[in-house]
Write a protein that binds this DNA or RNA. Structure first.
Lengths: 151, 151
DNA sequence: TTAAATGTAATTACTATGGTTACACATTGT
DNA sequence: ACAATGTGTAACCATAGTAATTACATTTAA
């Protein structure tokens, strides 16, 4: 279904910015970590800026900055900033109103889909960018330990 | 993100079949209610049959049938039968392993995405086709009442 | 004033999807 | 036996969303 990696990219970008602690990071540098194109990163940053999650500083030495503290950015905000919120699509054409199922299926589906969507969003809403970066640090420390013990 | 209406179509089709109570329904008739093409319905039915939710009867008077009782078909089974289970995509290209975030972001994202996906699936898993058809009947009765009172 | 960086438009390629036509094959019913 | 019915599937087209890329005007810091 969803083939967009924008959410994954966005979390990646925001994690980078949260480790910068106020020092602007250029789209060129970000693209180097994500392994993609600077222009694509700038487009993504535009969406994040529209959502109030980042700001940008023009000119030499400029780049992107977090607009909020990492523990005030939920992953739900990130998701909504960069991904269309529609998890499942309804019928494109109207179902046949002469049929009992056709008359009511969309109302019933709306309830089902909304509930599933809300469950998913509640999960994302319960985590912040700070949680994600904490996980990153934990993974890095684990790797360090492994490297030391294996010589 | 997801632009596929296959889940919506599938619930629609299964609701029709559950009201048939054992009488086969042709793809032609189903397509008439969904308002689409019979061949597309047959493609959808192939997926549902692969998942063990429907069977088909060839020949004159044939058509599709439910393979299970409606209260034994969860909407999660339907979703998995017709939709690719991947809610969010990861990075297509590997992130830069020379960067701390690049090294670990995918593991962290995996945890986030899996949890969100499981929350969504739990919601779908808690409802059966029988629940959906009960909702349909309820909506129809409400419409009947409205019609009677408004003349 | 020069270099750096953003913001955005335009373009290309790819993939998923819905829609449609066509047809071989199986099955029913007479 | 055979005609009618219906499935199953392949092939094809159009559309839409996305990533990737190039290009360039604009802004800003040093």
């Amino acid at each position: 279904m969803n083939t967009s990696s924008r959410f994954a990219f966005a979390v990646h970008v925001l994690a980078l910015l949260s480790l910068q602690e106020g020092v602007p990071l250029s789209s060129e540098m970000i693209a180097g970590s994500v392994n993609t194109n600077p222009a694509l990163i700038r487009r993504l940053l535009s969406m994040l800026a529209d959502a109030g999650l980042t700001t940008s500083q023009l000119g030499a030495g400029g780049g992107a900055l977090l607009a909020k503290a990492p523990d005030e950015i939920t992953l739900l905000q990130v998701y909504r900033a960069v991904d269309d919120a529609q998890l499942f699509a309804m019928h494109r054409e109207e179902p046949n109103p002469a049929c009992m199922v056709g008359r009511h299926i969309q109302v019933v589906l709306r309830g089902i889909i909304d509930e599933a969507q809300q469950a998913m969003e509640a999960s994302l809403g319960a985590r912040t960018l700070a949680d994600a970066t904490a996980d990153l640090m934990r993974a890095e420390r684990a790797l360090e330990r492994k490297r030391r013990s294996h010589g």
